[in-house]
Amino acid sequence: MSKIITETPRLIIREFNLDDVQAVYDFNADERVNLYTGDAGVIKSLADAERIIRDIWLTEYLQFGYARWAVVLKQTGKVIGFCGFKNDYRINETDIGYRFAPEYWGQGFATEANQACIDYAKAHMDLDYIVGDVVDRNHASINVLKKLGMNFNKKFQSFGFMIQRYDMYLKS
């Protein structure tokens, strides 16, 4: 059983485990999911999904106490995506992010899940500051970051994309 991080009325947010390999593959399978992520094509097989869980998320849970978390739809028990934080060594910041299978887009899950993560972080984690980087053409994700109360910080070029960075201080 994976550690449950937090819950919302519709979602359970928990740590990933190796039983989630098929789900991780499934929610990354549609090329639209990774269109603006900079890691399109990273998960092409179940072995790739297992590697991400084992070598990245499970390792980061041990190293930092957090990494991306599984988003489980309470109604079905199905893992529909991920949410939460990543210690991003490339930018020396903690990034908030999410990814969902397309059939769950436009239903408020990204905002709901990440607001729960922010609330959890404020109460239980030693995080003072988070960023959210989004490709400037990804208007839906920009709207999510704004709904979370994040503020525009700057624009920059990365991985061939124009990125907008939003940020938020968690401690006052």
Rank of each mutant, 00 (worst) to 15 (best):
residue 106 G to L: 02
residue 142 I to A: 13
residue 121 A to C: 04
residue 119 D to W: 05
residue 112 E to W: 11
residue 120 Y to G: 03
residue 127 L to F: 07
residue 125 M to I: 03
residue 114 N to M: 00
residue 118 I to K: 06
residue 115 Q to C: 02
residue 141 S to P: 05
residue 116 A to K: 12
residue 145 L to M: 15
residue 144 V to S: 02
residue 139 H to I: 15
residue 112 E to I: 13
residue 124 H to Q: 11
residue 122 K to G: 09
residue 148 L to Q: 03
residue 118 I to P: 02
residue 143 N to H: 15
residue 128 D to V: 06
residue 132 G to P: 02
residue 108 G to Y: 02
residue 106 G to F: 05
residue 147 K to V: 11
residue 111 T to L: 09
residue 131 V to I: 15
residue 125 M to K: 14
residue 148 L to K: 15
residue 107 Q to H: 14
residue 146 K to H: 12
residue 112 E to K: 08
residue 139 H to S: 12
residue 120 Y to T: 09
residue 123 A to W: 05
residue 110 A to R: 01
residue 115 Q to V: 00
residue 132 G to L: 11
residue 144 V to M: 00
residue 104 Y to T: 10
residue 134 V to N: 08
residue 129 Y to R: 13
residue 103 E to T: 04
residue 143 N to W: 03
residue 106 G to M: 04
residue 111 T to Y: 01
residue 127 L to D: 00
residue 119 D to C: 07
residue 135 V to K: 06
residue 133 D to W: 05
residue 120 Y to P: 03
residue 108 G to S: 01
residue 109 F to V: 06
residue 119 D to M: 10
residue 147 K to G: 04
residue 132 G to E: 11
residue 136 D to E: 14
residue 128 D to Q: 12
residue 105 W to K: 03
residue 142 I to V: 15
residue 115 Q to H: 02
residue 130 I to Q: 09
residue 132 G to V: 10
residue 144 V to H: 01
residue 147 K to L: 10
residue 134 V to S: 10
residue 120 Y to K: 03
residue 148 L to G: 00
residue 115 Q to R: 14
residue 117 C to N: 07
residue 134 V to W: 06
residue 148 L to C: 08
residue 105 W to M: 11
residue 140 A to M: 13
residue 114 N to E: 07
residue 128 D to N: 15
residue 146 K to D: 14
residue 118 I to V: 15
residue 138 N to Q: 09
residue 107 Q to V: 15
residue 104 Y to K: 04
residue 147 K to R: 15
residue 118 I to S: 04
residue 103 E to N: 06
residue 135 V to G: 06
residue 115 Q to N: 11
residue 145 L to C: 08
residue 128 D to P: 03
residue 116 A to V: 03
residue 145 L to R: 04
residue 113 A to S: 14
residue 148 L to S: 01
residue 139 H to P: 00
residue 138 N to G: 04
residue 146 K to R: 15
residue 121 A to M: 02
residue 104 Y to L: 06
residue 137 R to S: 12
residue 114 N to S: 01
residue 130 I to W: 01
residue 122 K to E: 09
residue 133 D to I: 15
residue 124 H to W: 01
residue 103 E to M: 06
residue 148 L to A: 00
residue 102 P to E: 14
residue 115 Q to Y: 01
residue 146 K to C: 11
residue 118 I to N: 07
residue 110 A to Y: 00
